[in-house]
């Protein structure tokens, strides 16, 4: 059970990595970044449950806080980039944002 659930966490990490590297629009990139961080939180929760590493749950809370901050910064970066160049796909940006 432990191994299978860890495999699901790795698969979620893979899906997130695909979303980040496939060059989609900003919304999908933010989704994918959250998925990457959620895969890490999932691994921490699974190891805490099955291996008794309860201190990992504390680490998971920290990752959640950082993920929230990262989402805030990400939204602002894309809002600013959209304001400057009217584009939502990072590959299409041609000018400096700041």
């Amino acid at each position: 059970m432990f191994e299978i659930e860890m495999l699901f966490a790795f698969a979620l990490f893979g899906v997130g990595l695909y979303g980040v590297t496939s060059g989609r629009d900003f919304l999908r990139i933010l989704f994918s970044l959250e998925m990457l961080l959620n895969a890490v939180i999932m691994m921490l929760a699974i190891t805490a449950h099955y291996l008794g590493m309860t201190q990992n749950i504390t680490m998971a809370y920290m990752v959640i806080v950082l993920a929230t901050l990262e989402a805030g910064v990400g939204i602002l970066i894309f809002a600013l980039a959209h304001k400057v160049s009217k584009m939502v796909i990072p590959d299409d940006y041609t000018q400096e944002v700041i």
Binding site: L17, T21, S22, R24, F31
Partner: peptide, 28 residues
């Protein structure tokens, strides 16, 4: 809600992006 807020700033329609085929290989 934060992402929905971002969508309201930028607009709901996103143009189709060119996806990189190597990304699937990378993720796998």
């Amino acid at each position: 809600v934060l992402l929905l807020f971002g969508i309201t700033i930028i607009g709901i329609e996103f143009p189709k992006a060119k996806t990189r085929p190597l990304a699937v290989v990378n993720a796998l």
